[in-house]
Design a protein around this nucleic acid. Structure first.
Lengths: 227, 227
DNA sequence: ACATATTATGACGCTTAGTTCACTTTTAGA
DNA sequence: TCTAAAAGTGAACTAAGCGTCATAATATGT
């Protein structure tokens, strides 16, 4: 397995990056390179999340990562390439966590609870990336969007389908009432979770994220219409 | 009433811009200036929404608006100032429409229906701005964020409070069950509407926005838990 | 019609930042 | 130890675009 195919796999979301780094027995030099690459990405993440894509220069990233500018260009074709790699890698972590959560759990309700928990957990443990992503995953550059947004959007739709399939299965076996299309329910649940996380990001003490996932889920589980 | 105070009012969202332009009897030259200003803003909106803040130059805006660059600087201190004015003006239109919607309607349910309808209506009639806002309201530049984001966030929180008050009143007079805090319900409803609109923006034929507002509202009105 | 004030213009200066590449340093094998 | 290849470096090149300001055009009042 070559370095580039490993990177490819990591980027595609098949393998977690850490796993790649630890498990595979690459020649020492290759492992070293991979670690350096990672350090550059980390520096980039830090800076991008603090100041935004357009307000961070390659010089800054180089300085933060303690490399010369030229070195960055040994790893990444250009600034966009670096950014793209960074975002895709992080997104893969998120995707893996969410997919896993939706597969764990006895019944549909438990799967959904796990999903809410996973969102919160990833959110908390990856704040810089969350900030970066929320801030400008969509607005960075229309040329980046072309390559990156498409891939990410496709992934997001896949995730929505997966959530929808949980609702669908719950409706099929009568655990849930058939109050709306599974897809609509998925969209609604997911956006609600995000909204709560966003508010929490803004002012954690004013809008704390509910510890109990049912605080959110009950909005969907219990109807509010009387009479 | 001076020009600047009128602009101030328009920006603060107290008066619609068109109203300002038509009703008030300003000296001819002043009205002319206002129209020119508006033309520049429109040019800016078009370009920003197509290419994003950082990929549009002042030269381009000048060309699109058919003015010389220097002229833009007679109206706006700099590029950020222009952008800020643009966003605030558009946001005021949205705020006015949403607030009005939430005030019209016999009961709480009708108010919420009106709100959903208003969101869709504004969305459809202001697509360029929607695109711009979604794409990079947050990621433009951290210096803009400071001034603009704060103001807009405050407005958004006010809107959420207003939606929450509708839920609260509905719960108080027993029309709604007390299944979650009014604020949580507001957050959830609003984010759901946005999510639907967003999907619709991406692929209108695949994710059409539901004509009937109850398609969305029923997710909240009718609980889905059986047994 | 003329003079003066106001407004519009766009070539140019200056800064910033992405990228390159000739050179230095390090590594690895003979 | 020596040498060739690989990796690392950062000064310098280049491009882009913001904002200025001296000048031209236009409007206003006499």
């Amino acid at each position: 397995m070559t370095l580039s195919s490993l990177l490819e796999a990591a980027i595609t979301g098949l393998v977690r990056f850490e796993t790649v780094m630890q498990k595979e027995k690459l020649p020492r030099r290759e492992r070293e390179k991979l670690r350096q690459r990672q350090e550059i990405l980390t520096a980039g993440l830090t800076l991008f999340s603090e100041k935004g894509f357009h307000n961070v220069s390659m010089h800054e990233i180089a300085e933060e990562a303690e490399f010369a500018i030229g070195t960055l260009y040994k790893f990444f074709q250009n600034k966009e390439d670096l950014y793209r790699a960074l975002v895709l890698e992080q997104c893969s972590l998120f995707a893996a966590a969410f997919n896993e959560a939706l597969e764990q759990g006895e019944d549909e309700i438990e799967k959904l609870r796990n999903y809410v928990r996973a969102q919160y957990k990833m959110f908390r443990s990856h704040l810089p990336f969350v900030r970066l992503f929320i801030a400008e995953s969509r607005g960075v550059s229309y040329s980046i969007k072309a390559g990156l947004d498409q891939e990410l959007r496709a992934r997001y739709y896949r995730l929505l389908e997966k959530i929808a399939s949980v609702f669908e299965s719950g409706i099929r076996n009568k655990r849930f009432g058939n109050i709306a299309s599974p897809y609509h329910l998925a969209v609604s649940l997911d956006s609600t979770i995000h909204a709560f996380l966003l508010l929490c990001l803004d002012e954690p003490e004013k809008h704390p994220f509910p510890e109990d996932p049912d605080t959110i889920l009950n909005i969907f589980f219990q109807g509010m219409l009387n009479g």
